[in-house]
Amino acid sequence: MNLFRLLGDLSHLASILVLLHKIQTSRSCRGISFKTQALYVAVFVARYLDLFWRYISLYNSAMKVFFIGSSCYILYLMKYRYRPTNDPSIDTFRIEYLLVPCAILSLIFNYNFMPTEILWSFSIFLESVAILPQLFMLQRTGEAEAITTHYLAALGIYRALYIPNWIYRYFTEGVIDPIAVTAGIVQTGLYLDFFYVYFTKVLQGQKFELPA
C-alpha cells in the first residue's frame, strides 16, 4: 500500500458517502444517473467476486463488501424509496454502446483466458466509461447541485490518484498492469472537462453551469 492508492481509495469511499448524504438529506436522487449507478453495481460485482476465494487483507475485503453493498443500496434508493424523484427521461445514454465494446475488449485483453480474469478485465473497462451516462445527463441539463459535483469530483480524483500509484509501483516493485493503466488514463481523461468547471467555478463558490 502506498499513499497515492490509500488516498485514492479514501476518495472513492468519500464519493459514495457524499452521494448517500445527498440522497438522504434532500430525500431525492434528482440529477443522478440511474444507468451510471447500475453500471457501478456491475463493475463491483464482476471485479470483487474474488472476495470468495482470495483473501488479501481485512482492508481489502472490507472495502470490497462496502463497494458492492453501498452501490446496491443506492440502486434500491433510486428504484424504490425515492423513485418519484428519479427522472428516466433525461437519463438517455444507450448503455449497450458501453457494455458490448467492453465485453469484446475483455475477451481480447486479459491476463488469463478464464472467466474470473475476463470478468476482471470487463470490470476495469466498464468502470472507465461507467460515468458517461452521468456526464451525458449533466451535459443535457447544463447544471448540477453543488453536492452532486462534489460526488463527481471525489470519484474522478479517485482514479486520478491511481495513476501516480501505478508509476510508484512500477519503480518500487517492477510491476506494470497495462490494462488497468490504459483504462485508468481513459477514465481520468473523461473527467477533465468536468474538473475544469469544478475547480474554476464550484470551488470559487459559483454554481456549476455549463456554457450553453
Binding site: R5, D9, D50, R54, S57, Y170, G174, V175, I176, D177
Partner: peptide, 10 residues
C-alpha cells in the same frame, strides 16, 4: 518488468 495485475488493488 513483469506485465501482470497486482491482485491487492481495488
Amino acid at each position: 518488468v513483469d506485465a501482470e495485475r497486482p491482485k491487492d488493488e481495488l
